[in-house]
Amino acid sequence: MVLTDIKAGGKAKIINTEHVNVLVRRRLLDLGIMEGTEISIKRILPFGGPFAVEADGQWVGIRRSEAKLIQVCHS
């Protein structure tokens, strides 16, 4: 299952970010989002727009194409 399978308002736990672009992964790490992090989907922008996710009070916007590469499981 990947992050984009989760609906707005839902929660999930990240299990793999290996396929994500290196720079994006580094930045997500900086913001405290990595394997094992529990995140919730706050907003999904229309027309294939970005995802706003929240982890531990930190809100982050990422692209849908990137979110598709983040593997998650139900937490």
Partner: peptide, 11 residues
Amino acid sequence: EGSMFVIELPP
């Protein structure tokens, strides 16, 4: 060369 976008959303 591949675009990237990650942004912090402050309260």
